[in-house]
Design a binder for these strands. Sequence first.
DNA 1: CCAGAATGCGAGTGACCGCTCGCGTTTGTC
DNA 2: GACAAACGCGAGCGGTCACTCGCATTCTGG
Lengths: 231, 231
Amino acid sequence: MPEKPEKAGTETTAGTETAAATAEERPRRRQARGERRITQLLEAAAAVFSTTGYTAASTNAIAREAGVSPGTLYQFFPNKEAIAIELGSRLMHEMRQSYDEVLTPADPAATSLEEVITGAVDRFIEFNGRHPAFFALMHGPDIPGRIAEEHDALHTTLVARVETLVAPFVPDAPAPAVTRTARMCVGIYKAGLELILAHEGAEREAYIQELKEALLRYLRPLTGASCVDTP
Amino acid sequence: MPEKPEKAGTETTAGTETAAATAEERPRRRQARGERRITQLLEAAAAVFSTTGYTAASTNAIAREAGVSPGTLYQFFPNKEAIAIELGSRLMHEMRQSYDEVLTPADPAATSLEEVITGAVDRFIEFNGRHPAFFALMHGPDIPGRIAEEHDALHTTLVARVETLVAPFVPDAPAPAVTRTARMCVGIYKAGLELILAHEGAEREAYIQELKEALLRYLRPLTGASCVDTP
DNA sequence: CCAGAATGCGAGTGACCGCTCGCGTTTGTC
DNA sequence: GACAAACGCGAGCGGTCACTCGCATTCTGG
């Protein structure tokens, strides 16, 4: 949702609840052109963020990339942070949809670990390849606090989802242990993703396979399999 | 692009090779005080870098942290990047010593996988706890190119060391596969390290154990062990 | 003890960046 | 066509940052 540019001065922050209620969502008349500009600016921001990171990206550069003036940019976004927040929100929304599809099999008991891992890995890799800005925004050390919060929320949801997938395999394990396992899974995935994105072609495929193997080997002992030394 | 302003200085950059040869390393007379200031500035830089990251850290803040003036800082470092490079070099040198000790057992055949993993993980965790700036410098997306190069070199050495540890277990595997395994190990370690550093006390210990487990489960199949389903 | 180098200072400089402001242009509504 | 609101522009403002410069202070060899 695009933020309304809030002019500083007359009505600051919370407090005037009554006044805010009346003017909080003024409908825009020229929505078509504006909405187009917003997505255009967001695409430009994604391009700049993914190449330079958040802090190093200048709003002038984003405007230039979008082919508009700095003033136009600030017609639609109150400040630089709002651009990142809006972009992050859209990406996270799409991301959430992605893993809602992939990590929620119809019948958990009838789906093998291999299938879930393969599906999830493939889906997330495709997503990150399509939206390189996602990685830049989520893993930059300099992101504004608001994005970090939203990303934490997303991350928490993701971990929770993995927990529900893992939990049935270890009915006796205490909750914290399940959480640790889920977090470790996400961590391994992220590590593998970095390796995957750093390579191309056949080598990339090999790393994808390696990541799936790693996750499988990490989780398989939970399924009741046991290992024996056969020297 | 924020290019470094090129001063028409007497001894900057390349070009005057002959003159550089004569004046390239003028020995300082007052080394005692200067050397002390340098380490003092480096410690201050480590503190600031680890809390704010490289780009967000201002040279004035580093000077203030060290209790000196900005001018004094520039008496010993030509620019901000040089501070990070020197600090990075020292940290990487110590890091290199660490894993030279830990990843080079006297008799590789007589050392079990468990021992190597436990030793390496404990050592690296201790190092990262002692030098929080290391993580900030090595994993920031905004670090200057020079540091990235040095870090790449360190990383490559580390991967090579892991390769030599892994290789004996898989004599038939092609070299690229061994490299992938080694890189994956390092990736898993880094993912686990982040989880570990994010927790404290008993929870941290649990994550340390979890990381060791993850590495063990990832590598054990290479040792000749095989898994069977026992439902 | 003294010339001179090393060290120390901190206000200042130029460049850049986020953001604003005044004003002109387009577009929907009557 | 007239009006107003949304859109668009780009020079410029205030602020920060990396870095400098002239000058004062401390040390050391001779």
